[in-house]
Design a protein around this nucleic acid. Structure first.
Lengths: 115, 115
DNA sequence: TTGTTTTATCGTATATTTGCGATGAACGAT
DNA sequence: ATCGTTCATCGCAAATATACGATAAAACAA
């Protein structure tokens, strides 16, 4: 079966894997970069900065909104996108936990431990 | 078409989206956690710690190996897995760049900027 | 109202991911 | 050589993801 067995994992694991999934496409990474650099950006501008069709960019924006990394506010016929600061900091904190153990103690590779 | 248009993006964007993709499944996150906590772990032990079949776990290990986050050394009939410290630090550094702009300056949301 | 601009959603095609049973390959032990 | 253990790979089925044209919805302008 192809459906991921998310029921078997902890909420923390599911949340973080969801954030990672949202960042797992170069277009969405570029959108995050644009929004953090410009603070605020109209949807149309984002479309112009990506090598993808408008419908595809809209889908990527939806995925980033789904996990809460960005938000979009309606401004007349346009939509003004920006990063969601609180959620981004939460994601950053959680993401760093994955790497934290490693930097605390000197890493032991398989080979150095080999008898 | 379903194939991601990776040709249109920078090597940096592709590398980081690849790392994020490797971390975008709860099972692979748990594997990373296990390996950073235990330093070294036999494949069979990892299988026992996950609610998935051996063949599926092997696939997840392969994906983590593909992006270089872990490595596996053959030890008789068993395989000894561990984190790849250098690559993990590189991934950590690159990942932090996404969030760096935000923390440098006070974030401006759409609504605060709204005229 | 009519037309224009802007964006989201629908429908569809194709590629990739996920999951697992079955099988194969490598090794140690008997 | 044969057996059991350990793990990767193959082959398949089902679910997701990616991409885009077409269309709908919302707002503004004329």
């Amino acid at each position: 079966m192809a459906k991921p067995k998310t029921e078997e994992f902890t909420p923390d694991e599911i949340y973080l894997s969801d954030v990672a999934k949202a960042l797992s496409h170069p277009a969405r990474l570029r959108i995050m970069k644009i929004l953090t650099e410009m603070n605020v950006c109209m949807c149309g501008e984002i479309v112009d900065l990506l090598p993808l069709a408008q419908a595809t960019v809209s889908q990527h924006l939806k995925e980033l909104k789904r996990v809460g990394l960005i938000q979009g506010d309606i401004d007349g016929p346009k939509v003004c996108y920006c990063v969601n600061p609180g959620n981004l900091i939460k994601a950053k904190t959680e993401m760093e936990k994955i790497f934290s153990h490693l930097t605390k103690k000197g890493a032991i590779s398989c080979k150095t431990k080999k008898k």
